[in-house]
Design a protein around this nucleic acid. Sequence first.
DNA 1: TATTTTGTTTGACTTAAATCAATGTGCTAG
DNA 2: CTAGCACATTGATTTAAGTCAAACAAAATA
Lengths: 252, 252
Amino acid sequence: MTDINTSKTTATTITSDKFKVACSNCNLRELCLPMGFNAEEMLRLDEIVATRKQVKQGQHLFTNGDPFTSLYAIRTGFFKTCVASEDGREQVTGFQMAGEIIGLDGIVTDHHNCDAVALEDAEVCIMPFSNVEHLSREFPVLQRHVHKIMSREIVRENGMMMMLGNMRAEERLAAFLLNLVQRLHARGFSQSELILRMTREEIGSYLGLKLETISRTFSKFSEDGIIEVKQRYVRILDADQLKQLCNLQTSI
Amino acid sequence: MTDINTSKTTATTITSDKFKVACSNCNLRELCLPMGFNAEEMLRLDEIVATRKQVKQGQHLFTNGDPFTSLYAIRTGFFKTCVASEDGREQVTGFQMAGEIIGLDGIVTDHHNCDAVALEDAEVCIMPFSNVEHLSREFPVLQRHVHKIMSREIVRENGMMMMLGNMRAEERLAAFLLNLVQRLHARGFSQSELILRMTREEIGSYLGLKLETISRTFSKFSEDGIIEVKQRYVRILDADQLKQLCNLQTSI
DNA sequence: TATTTTGTTTGACTTAAATCAATGTGCTAG
DNA sequence: CTAGCACATTGATTTAAGTCAAACAAAATA
């Protein structure tokens, strides 16, 4: 377990390289660095990411109905977003990790339309949306980036609709694992092993399945030699077979 | 059938009032009218909606993989958007009517990530996205509006995920009908009757169900006196019961 | 008008996943 | 160390929706 995404155990050892990679996308300042800004422009961009916030495991970053003021760029930690129906059924709509943005759901109504909950201790950058908009007017490259972030979320959710509408349990779980591992890999973690930050029930909610089905499907994959599972630890033994299982393009 | 959304039969009779309402949202010029722009500013905004395009029934407005250059504001007609998996399964991701925007899926990758198909003869405004971005920098109110359009789509898709992940066939169809009729009502059409522009199969694809299930559920609703169905014509007899069936907030 | 074609309804049967239930596992805290 | 708790696994059974198939209706075409 050298390379794995065990934040608590290895958080102190991941000091420079890993951390830089993991956070390379995590706020707009770092993000715009490779876009050729000068020092002064960088300072301006810093205005929108000056404030940081710690969120303890289990705590809500925001809740459905909260007034919308800011987007949040995740620096460290892991979140879920979920919506609830009137009669209490809950649907996890996404899992977000370092470098990803939460809060886009609030723009349209000026209040949030889902809950964001930390699945482990986390740190976020608070980006007041009026600042984002103001600076977007000044820096076209930032404006385009904000648009891309929103468009990416729309495309991701299109893929989720395909998954929930058309795919069988095995396909869904395969696509889910591949997507997770791919995103972790882009942050410098292993391609073949990961620690799940969520329960079987949360995975089930996300994939439109019950927790028992998730458990059974994990066991099936394990028996077939496709993965090795032990509690939250998952190692991918046969990525090709996993890819074959899901004909969905998890490209984004 | 006085008030119903029969575009072909009544298109010529809907000249002034109805047409204005139906199209009140249909492009940025009309949309920004109530925002207090002066004539000169209006002319500037006209730049991005100068071009119109006709799309015949069955034709693609754009196709997955097409280079992304523009958003499209629907003036008249009805579209579906859909994504396909590698093995050919198709998922309808949305139905769009006059006043709504298509093409947001293309921003993130500079090419489109779904197909947009006209379900009846349609006219759209072509809005080159670079123009939209340019003018957004100049007019904060337009910038905010563009952000809201994207956020609304994200929230809508969150609701779809709840639907596809948690709701039963009856709930899905009830929510679908209520949503359609509500959007039509906002455009000046009847609250209680509508003409479906799509097949049972397309409804099924959208709702994650098979066409036979759609047909059976229509029949069930009809037997229960909740709706009257005859082919594509639907009249809602008991909206309350329909609302009770779906505990989903179809607010947006 | 006759004839395909396309879309819809309905019935009989199957199945994937849900539900219900029991047991197992590994933390956490006293 | 062990008691309690949250989470996970596995088995038995049920069920909502899918599948297969036939008949029907409406629209398009000849």
